[in-house]
Simulated assay, not measured.
Amino acid sequence: MASYSISEINNIIKGELIGNTTLSIESPEEIQKANSNQITFIGSNKYVKFWAESKACAAFIDYNVTISPGDNRAFIKVKNVDLAMAKVLDLFNLPSPVFDTNIHPTAVIHETAKIGTDCKIGANCYIGKDVELGNGVVLYPNVCVFDETIIGNNTIVWSGTIIRERCIIGSHCIFHTNVSIGADGFGYRPSEDGRQLVKIPQIGNVIIGNYVEIGANSCVDRAKFSSTIIGDGCKIDNLVQIAHNSIMGRSCIMAGHSGLAGSVTLGDGVIIGGSASIKDHTTIHSGATVGAGSGVMNDVEAGKTVLGYPAQDARDMLKEWVAVRRLVKNQ
């Protein structure tokens, strides 16, 4: 088990060390659960009250927090507690599962597939015709990559994920368990006699940029024509739906249970809160935020925060909720 002194950790974080502790630090933990060999964090004055009872020997604290650490305890004062904790979590991060052999003998790889150097392909994987894997790609057991798909260098695909034909995946991506990339978009129209639904063929593909991470059980559907596109650096939570022909700009965030209907466009840096839903053919411009549980029915201006169902300017929505609450109380 790895352990570090408070000085060693501060040399990595480069914060302001306040106080000292002789105890070794063996892992990070929440302030109320930590033991004497753990480091915790105090991101705001809201959590100061827990420090006196905490057993942690050290903590990262925000510059606005002014308490003293106490005997044989230490603080590392930083500008961003979350980023400091991310570095420490990385120090104690356990290694990924080990491959006994780079390509498992049960993997089925089409003879036309091109496999880069240092790739790892787990048990029962399927790699189809004319697939191209870049260098250092990792496919954990039971991954399927169908025909003519291209995956860039150092992308990691966890078990149960299916990547359909003709998709283009960038480098340094992470797809967690049971992700679906490139399934048919949801397209149906009533038949002429009105007695059944006619399926509209989905002949496009999915294009995903570099450094994209997609959480477990999320779906990115292929386009009806052209491409569904996810830009570089996007981070997508578990159980997220991205429908056909949607386009996400760079570094967008989508929290769990949120969804884009068909042909939605997100600018750069858009944040979609958990369980929010976005109507088809809607544009949310760069830097906008959609609050959790909201339903967006119209375009959203750049940098604006919207909330509610239907979504509107967050300040107006909050005023409306306050007014409704007052009406209820006065009845």
Rank of each mutant, 00 (worst) to 15 (best):
I6L: 07
S7N: 11
E8G: 08
N11C: 04
K14Q: 09
N20Q: 14
N20F: 15
T21W: 11
T21I: 12
E26W: 09
E26V: 06
S27G: 13
E29M: 06
E30A: 09
E30Q: 07
Q32F: 08
S36W: 02
T40I: 14
F41V: 03
G43A: 15
S44F: 06
S44I: 04
V48I: 10
K49G: 00
A52V: 04
A52F: 01
A52R: 04
K55R: 11
C57T: 14
I67E: 08
S68V: 12
N72P: 03
V78I: 13
K79H: 03
V81N: 00
D82I: 10
L83V: 10
K87H: 09
F92D: 15
N93I: 11
P95V: 04
P97F: 05
N102V: 10
P105R: 10
T106G: 10
I109H: 08
H110E: 10
H110V: 05
E111V: 08
I115M: 02
T117F: 07
T117D: 12
D118M: 02
G122Y: 05
C125V: 08
C125F: 02
I127W: 09
K129C: 08
K129T: 13
K129P: 08
E132V: 14
L133K: 14
V145C: 10
G152A: 05
T155Y: 09
I156M: 15
V157S: 04
W158I: 09
W158V: 12
I163L: 15
E165Q: 15
R166F: 11
C167M: 12
C173V: 00
I174F: 13
I181E: 02
D184L: 02
Y188E: 11
R189K: 13
D193I: 13
Q196I: 07
P201M: 02
Q202E: 02
S218Y: 10
S218L: 06
C219H: 05
C219A: 11
F225H: 01
T228H: 12
I236N: 10
I236A: 08
G249L: 12
I253V: 07
M254P: 12
G256V: 00
S258R: 03
S258I: 02
S258L: 06
L260W: 09
V264A: 05
G267I: 04
G269Q: 06
I272C: 13
G273E: 04
A276Q: 01
I278E: 00
T282I: 01
T283V: 12
S286W: 01
G293A: 01
G303S: 11
P310Y: 05
P310V: 08
P310Q: 03
Q312Y: 02
A314Q: 03
D316H: 12
D316N: 07
M317L: 00
M317Q: 15
R326I: 01
L327C: 01
L327R: 06
Q331P: 04
Q331E: 08
